[in-house]
Protein backbone atom coordinates (compact mmCIF):
# COMPACT_ATOMS: atom_id res chain seq x y z
CA UNK A 1 0.00 0.00 0.00
CA UNK A 2 1.25 3.43 -0.96
CA UNK A 3 1.15 6.31 1.48
CA UNK A 4 2.15 9.95 1.28
CA UNK A 5 3.16 12.08 4.22
CA UNK A 6 3.20 15.84 4.10
CA UNK A 7 5.42 17.64 6.59
CA UNK A 8 6.00 21.22 7.60
CA UNK A 9 9.64 21.47 8.61
CA UNK A 10 11.89 24.19 10.01
CA UNK A 11 14.55 25.14 7.46
CA UNK A 12 17.61 24.09 9.45
CA UNK A 13 20.89 22.27 8.81
CA UNK A 14 20.31 18.56 8.44
CA UNK A 15 16.51 18.64 8.78
CA UNK A 16 15.97 16.67 5.56
CA UNK A 17 18.59 14.17 6.66
CA UNK A 18 16.73 13.53 9.93
CA UNK A 19 13.51 12.86 8.04
CA UNK A 20 14.93 10.50 5.44
CA UNK A 21 16.86 8.60 8.09
CA UNK A 22 13.61 7.72 9.90
CA UNK A 23 12.49 5.94 6.74
CA UNK A 24 15.85 4.25 6.21
CA UNK A 25 16.26 3.09 9.80
CA UNK A 26 12.80 1.61 10.09
CA UNK A 27 13.27 -0.08 6.72
CA UNK A 28 10.92 1.79 4.38
CA UNK A 29 12.08 2.93 0.97
CA UNK A 30 11.29 6.44 -0.23
CA UNK A 31 9.72 6.37 -3.71
CA UNK A 32 9.34 10.08 -4.19
CA UNK A 33 10.33 13.19 -2.26
CA UNK A 34 9.65 16.88 -2.78
CA UNK A 35 10.84 19.82 -0.69
CA UNK A 36 9.58 23.36 -1.35
CA UNK A 37 9.27 26.59 0.59
CA UNK A 38 5.88 26.43 2.27
CA UNK A 39 5.18 30.10 1.75
CA UNK A 40 6.98 32.17 -0.91
CA UNK A 41 7.36 35.12 1.48
CA UNK A 42 9.03 33.09 4.21
CA UNK A 43 11.83 30.59 3.72
CA UNK A 44 11.89 29.45 7.38
CA UNK A 45 9.41 26.65 6.80
CA UNK A 46 9.58 23.97 4.15
CA UNK A 47 6.86 21.66 2.96
CA UNK A 48 8.26 18.19 2.41
CA UNK A 49 6.18 15.50 0.75
CA UNK A 50 7.31 11.89 0.95
CA UNK A 51 5.74 8.99 -0.92
CA UNK A 52 6.52 5.52 0.35
CA UNK A 53 5.11 1.99 0.55
CA UNK A 54 4.06 0.05 3.58
CA UNK A 55 1.13 -1.40 5.50
CA UNK A 56 -1.02 0.31 8.11
CA UNK A 57 1.58 -0.47 10.79
CA UNK A 58 4.38 1.12 8.74
CA UNK A 59 2.31 4.19 8.05
CA UNK A 60 1.52 4.83 11.71
CA UNK A 61 5.06 4.05 12.87
CA UNK A 62 6.63 6.43 10.36
CA UNK A 63 4.17 9.19 11.23
CA UNK A 64 4.72 8.89 14.93
CA UNK A 65 8.49 8.81 14.60
CA UNK A 66 8.37 11.86 12.33
CA UNK A 67 6.17 13.72 14.82
CA UNK A 68 8.93 13.32 17.42
CA UNK A 69 11.49 15.22 15.34
CA UNK A 70 12.23 18.63 16.77
CA UNK A 71 12.45 20.30 13.35
CA UNK A 72 9.11 18.86 12.22
CA UNK A 73 6.21 21.19 12.96
CA UNK A 74 3.34 19.23 11.43
CA UNK A 75 2.78 15.77 9.98
CA UNK A 76 -0.21 15.02 7.75
CA UNK A 77 -1.21 11.95 5.83
CA UNK A 78 -2.51 12.85 2.40
Amino acid sequence: MEFTVELLVANRYGALNRITSIYARRGYNIDELEAVVADKTNSDIYRITVRSKGDEYAKIQVMRQLEKLYDVKEVKLT
Binding site: Y13, G14, N17, R25
Partner: peptide, 14 residues
Protein backbone atom coordinates in the same frame (compact mmCIF):
# COMPACT_ATOMS: atom_id res chain seq x y z
CA UNK B 1 29.53 14.62 15.36
CA UNK B 2 26.03 15.93 14.69
CA UNK B 3 25.77 13.55 11.73
CA UNK B 4 27.34 10.70 13.66
CA UNK B 5 25.01 10.99 16.64
CA UNK B 6 21.85 11.95 14.79
CA UNK B 7 20.11 8.55 15.12
CA UNK B 8 20.96 8.26 18.85
CA UNK B 9 19.86 11.64 20.17
CA UNK B 10 16.49 13.24 20.73
CA UNK B 11 17.96 16.20 18.93
CA UNK B 12 21.31 17.84 18.25
CA UNK B 13 22.55 21.27 17.25
CA UNK B 14 25.58 22.90 15.66
Amino acid sequence: IVGITQPIVKHNFV
